[in-house]
Design a protein around this nucleic acid. Structure first.
Lengths: 344, 344
DNA sequence: CTGTTAGCGCTTTCAC
DNA sequence: GTGAAAGCGCTAACAG
């Protein structure tokens, strides 16, 4: 099983490099990492020696001594969901620009997976940790506290983070969704959503806003998948019309689902938006061009990734960063509402 | 800038753990990693010591000695494209199941980025490397050869890989696309595609198949974005009808684009599939349920990721694996054609 | 089943 | 501007 040969056991080391350049190992190291401390001529001789020998530094050894790895460990629930992939893309790019590399875990929406992943990651001594969401196991929290490493929780805003947080309030987004539909004149909006805790919290906000407005309790259809695709639109709409025939609008837990519903509603001959309203959730910036009848609660995943990375970078460099950033959201299409935005 | 304090400088080490458990460090190490070599009672005492001290192993030190990191460095062009994210997801999961972790780079379709990323990654001494595509700079190739590390190139099949390859032939996919449209009775199919080298190779196959069939040279509209979204469908179709009014079918370089085109074609009142045919490319398994008029060249990104990971795992464990695996593709919708599949 | 010795490749610290 | 000594935390190799 683990019979690997000692591959490339005689790769050139810093010592070899130093010998070739005719300097001591430490001078070679400085020529590579802190060239301003070294004479130009020396630097050139070392650079030439690198070329000649094909030297590749060993950052395991470097990290062991310096206690810095320039590694950030990040975990997301899924890479297939465009919301998270935009966030991830921005995160990785922003970190890479400061020469931090990212190792990626996928939790599949399971805090136990996250815990297992974290335990494994911590042994690599990352300089920073990125988690998605704010639900973690007790051991996850304990490991993080003991490790004493900068942590940023992305996506869900909450006022009391583990360390730092960048995101928006799911409940507020749900409230805004209801108010948008109500303002558009719909009287019996329903909810069509995935079985995931964040969508559930949005549904809660939606339901509360309905109660506050004195509207009837919205019907709620829950799909068992975490990420229903657009192809599920037909089933979804059929289920809705069977279980809540009175509904005159629907808040879908993703843009893809909303597009699928809309497309099937067209096929059924429903007049939209007059007769039936469809509201999505996500960041597909272009969806509205293609389907003018659609509205959506738009979240800027890229901004969350970028701001999260920036906060982490500040802390990793020994600085301070805002502990909590609420980036808000926006309801777009046929009358827009902007979510709140604040930082503390 | 780099004034970080030596964070957590007194975290417990293996030595501490050993002292607490009343054994030597090497025995503690074995109790952790090779429990079968250690007496049950000893193992328990060490486990207890871990609990008591909050010990977290340091795999930098471990890797330095053992020359094994259980780290795989992978790079993809983009995480936002569903094809790559499916592949990535399968890759990461398959590796994680064997206790390999993945660090992720994003090339943005640029071989120079890939080179820079690789140079940085190699210093972490990964056990394996995953690249997307087969276009690499000369230095990338040289670094890889010198590093003497298992490499798998995903996505594009080619018979002579750097080390191992798992993918399909873009040109064959393009050929199959043409033949499918021709078999459906379309006489003047056109191409609507992104400006990326793989889409270009599919277009080449498409054009060659047309030539072989004695059909006129297909019109080709190239978008400047690498990943046109469905919202671009309207512009795309308008451009097509302006520049190639004779076209009676179109091969789109992504499913999202195809959906957008289809949706707008509906709006224009085109009768489909009789009057106008739309063929996509991708893996959105559900697209066809929602849009029965659509066909697509379907690629199984998840299979590529899984098979690639399996090949790499075999090599990392010191075994052998097929050097080249062509996983093929499938044309689905209104008469299906299956792409080839082979392994060597 | 357990321990001793040595050293992985690098950077810190202190000296010149 | 450069170097010598020491050690980061762990595991391979060998011995018992």
């Amino acid at each position: 099983m683990t019979l690997r040969t000692l591959r490339n056991a005689n790769a050139p080391t810093l010592k070899d490099l130093a010998r070739i350049a005719g300097v001591s190992p430490i001078t070679a190291s400085r020529a590579l990492h802190r060239p301003e401390l070294v004479a130009e001529a020396t630097r050139l001789r070392v650079a030439q020696a690198v070329e000649q020998s094909g030297y590749v530094p060993n950052s395991l050894a470097g990290g062991l001594t310096s206690r810095q790895t320039r590694l950030v460990a990040a975990i997301v629930p899924s890479v297939g969901h465009s919301l998270f992939s935009d966030m991830l893309d921005a995160l990785i790019h922003t970190l890479a620009a400061q020469r931090y590399e990212t190792t990626l875990g996928i939790s599949s929406y399971d805090p136990e997976h996250e815990e297992t992943w974290l335990a494994a990651m911590l042994s690599r001594r990352p300089d920073g940790i990125v988690l998605t969401g704010t639900e973690h196991t007790a051991r996850t929290r304990r490991l993080l506290v003991n490790a004493d490493v900068p942590v940023v929780e992305l996506w869900d805003y909450q006022p009391h983070p583990l360390d730092m947080v960048v995101g928006f309030s799911q409940e507020d987004a749900g409230r805004a969704a209801f108010r948008h539909l109500a303002a558009c004149g719909y009287r019996r909006p329903a909810i069509l959503r995935a079985d995931d805790s964040r969508a559930a919290r949005r549904a809660l906000g939606f339901t509360r806003a309905a109660a506050e407005a004195g509207a009837p309790v919205p019907a709620q259809i829950v799909f068992s998948e975490a990420i229903p695709q657009s192809g599920r639109g037909r089933d979804a709409l059929n289920a809705l019309r069977a279980q809540a025939p009175e509904a005159d609008a629907v808040f879908c837990s993703s843009d893809a689902l909303a597009q699928g519903v809309l497309s099937h509603a067209h096929a059924l001959g429903l007049r939209m938006p007059e007769e039936f309203g469809v509201l999505g959730f996500g960041d597909q910036a272009l969806a509205l061009d293609a389907w003018p009848a659609l509205s959506t609660v738009r979240v800027d995943g890229a901004a969350i990734g970028r701001l999260g990375a920036e906060a982490l970078i500040a802390r990793m460099a020994g600085g301070v960063a805002a502990a909590a950033q609420d980036v808000g959201f926006e309801v777009v299409g046929r009358g827009s509402t902007r979510g709140h935005q604040a930082a503390r």
